[in-house]
Design a protein around this nucleic acid. Structure first.
Lengths: 153, 153
DNA sequence: CTAGATTGGTTTGTGCCACGAACTAACTAG
DNA sequence: CTAGTTAGTTCGTGGCACAAACCAATCTAG
């Protein structure tokens, strides 16, 4: 039972957490990336390029990503009024409900894992994690956006 | 600055941590999966099937994975003495040094992020994370193996 | 001992993800 | 009006992931 280092611990935990997400997403035939796409769009209607930045992907990758999601009726491309080259991507109703469902199940998973900790510990963990993320966001001048989005440097 | 929920926080943190890993791995033209492969092999010499279980992949996926790594001289297939159907996979010297390098850089990254927390907080976080992982491992009867390996249920 | 079942691995086909390079269309500066 | 930039798509390549089909070795019933 070699007590694992904090680095190992965080790596482990990260795999565990994202593994749950992946599993829940797979239940609805979503990949992690598709899920992140839906997550990002919950409160945004970005252009393709903004989306690429948000997801940390190449714009060409986003083309295909949105293609597939659009084919499934989860998102729509809306021609931008301001710039005729540009396209806005938004959730459809179907996409929105799907995103909500996956998020809920994932949340339940994580909550279940966290239930292994006594109340007090869970609270501490929560505030430490928040603190760390806030500090990191500040240190990198990055604005903290919500669920399912990685902080890219 | 909406204080994010613990679930969101953990998701964020996980993306952040694995994002670093991915970046460091990419510096050496490794994917996350390749890196996990090397990580798993640091102290094991499993069969293909064991490897599949360890990585949570299908055996057919592992075939290709090992193919590519072998082509790059990072791992070797060793015919099993015990069972002539079976193949053992092990690191080459090159694979071992590469794994060490990536691990070191990744560790530095995470350490740097953790440096944003005051000493006491970092220590608390460390023990909370360990505690959570241990509890989870116990709850699932899984033995806790080391770095870069997800706990599969 | 042998016929049938099981097991370990590879191969093949399909689809997603990711990138860079090349390209079109639209916007912007001068 | 022209030159250069920007937004997005397309194409080609390669890794990742799975299921299904397959082969060879091993096990097991009878």
């Amino acid at each position: 039972m070699a007590s694992l280092s904090i680095v190992d611990g965080l790596a482990q935990l990260s795999f565990l957490v994202l593994g749950r997400l992946e599993r829940r997403a797979a239940e609805h035939d979503l990949s992690i990336v598709q899920t992140r796409l839906l997550g990002v769009l919950r409160d945004r209607r970005p252009t393709m390029l903004e989306l690429a930045k948000l997801l940390g992907l190449d714009k060409s990758s986003v083309s295909g990503l949105v293609d597939r999601a659009e084919r499934r009726g989860l998102v729509t491309r809306i021609p931008s009024a301001a710039d005729r080259r540009s396209v806005l991507v938004g959730l459809t109703e179907q996409g929105r409900t799907l995103a909500a469902e996956v998020a809920a199940r994932f949340e339940a998973d994580v909550t279940e894992i966290l239930a292994l900790l006594p109340d007090a510990d869970r609270k501490s963990l929560s505030s430490l994690v928040s603190g760390l993320l806030v500090a990191h966001a500040r240190a990198n001048g990055v604005d903290l956006f919500d669920t399912l989005v990685p902080s890219h440097e």
